[in-house]
Design a protein around this nucleic acid. Structure first.
Lengths: 215, 215
DNA sequence: CGTCATCTTGATTACGCTCAAGCTCCGTGG
DNA sequence: CCACGGAGCTTGAGCGTAATCAAGATGACG
């Protein structure tokens, strides 16, 4: 997953430049607040300015699956159909930029904007496929290790902070909170990671972690 | 997933019209033959003319995950990064149309073509998210039922034919062949489906199947 | 008709879930 | 400042679902 993130970082700047000129209101959300709902219309496109956002799907039995987590600079809410299949909620205090899709179509640089949206969509697809691979074929231990690895990879630096609680991790990984918790304890016991409180950690043994994550 | 397929059927015609005029060679592949490999460059876009195609990801331990199955009219090989994350193989005898992405950029109706590619990408994303939900939160029984339901939904008609073997089903659903086989036997015993040979079946109790599949 | 791949079935194991307590960390109020 | 309360996290015991290992059955094809 490293390459993917690096690619993102490289491509991010031209996109940001283009978006700066777009007409879009910026809205603030509190922790857990809903940005859009399942089955709502998809005429808007969103972008995280600050904070973090999750997309969630709830089925009729109350089983929950998190689609993805989004951070500053990420687009979300891109969908082909007329209705959202997932809902979106703020993970913490978050500032979100909103664009009317229709208003983008009449902007000056139509082709550039369309390409930007395609790139964001294709990148999203790539992440989703990676996620798919993980859900289908990894063990609980590998899932949790991958998750921590990804967080560290995105954030960089020494001390890593989890923006989400255990339940959100579990629903992203297709596990229960108990299993997530046990795996975290296990990885820590083996020295792969070290937690300081339940939201902060450092990587203890990067090569062992990488080996565990290797697709 | 019904709505999604319906949407596809509605949108398919304009896309097909546009593609008809594109410069693209048509290539024939035999069962199991590789169309492109993991880590190969992504400068080409593909479209199934006849037959069926699967995309596969193999990890270092030999664990396999199938990304999706593609049938006549479907685009595949759309990726944001410079390298394919999955490989593509023909499931059976298949005719595949190939386009150079670069050559599309210089075609007459650039905007129309870009939009077509975006739509295909977004639809793909939607399918992948649906797949994600299934892998993360469904039981073996529900996965197999969903699979059969989807096949029937795509094909229509009374008698359904599976283009793929049990191993491919298992690798798509994140299960083993044994489990797939057992669930098929179980669903059949309950009268939800009826198999004539291991590749053909009919739906026996549509409402019960739908109830089982309901997200 | 025989051979080989594919599929099914059976017995056993194990990984992750469920149910049930504890524990930790915070915010709140006495 | 400390006690209380509650949410979120961790740990434990037991269970169930799907994986694994191992035969058989079926079916496709030469």
């Amino acid at each position: 997953m490293t390459a993917q993130i690096v690619t993102f970082a490289r491509a991010a700047h031209p996109i940001q430049d283009e978006v700066r000129s777009l007409p879009g209101a910026s809205i603030a959300y509190g922790p857990g607040e809903e940005i859009y709902a399942q089955a709502e219309e998809t005429d808007l496109i969103y972008r995280v300015v600050s904070g973090a956002v999750r997309t969630t799907r709830l089925d009729s039995d109350g089983r929950r699956q998190i689609g993805d987590f989004y951070y500053a600079g990420d687009f979300f809410g891109l969908e082909a159909g007329p209705e959202h299949r997932f809902s979106a909620e703020a993970l913490c205090d978050a500032q979100v930029q909103v664009f009317k899709r229709a208003s983008l179509a009449v902007a000056d640089d139509t082709v550039g904007i369309e390409r930007m949206i395609w790139t964001a969509t294709a990148r999203e697809l790539e992440r989703t496929r990676e996620h798919l691979m993980m859900l289908g074929r990894k063990t609980a231990r590998e899932k949790v290790a991958s998750f921590l690895y990804d967080v560290a990879d995105r954030q960089g630096g020494e001390i890593q902070t989890l923006t989400m609680g255990r339940q959100d991790m579990a629903d992203y990984l297709g596990l229960t909170i108990e299993t997530v918790s046990r795996m975290l304890t296990q990885l820590q016991a083996e020295g792969l990671v070290a937690f300081m409180g339940c939201r902060q950690f450092r990587i203890g043994n990067r090569s062992a972690l990488t080996r565990l994550v290797a697709a």
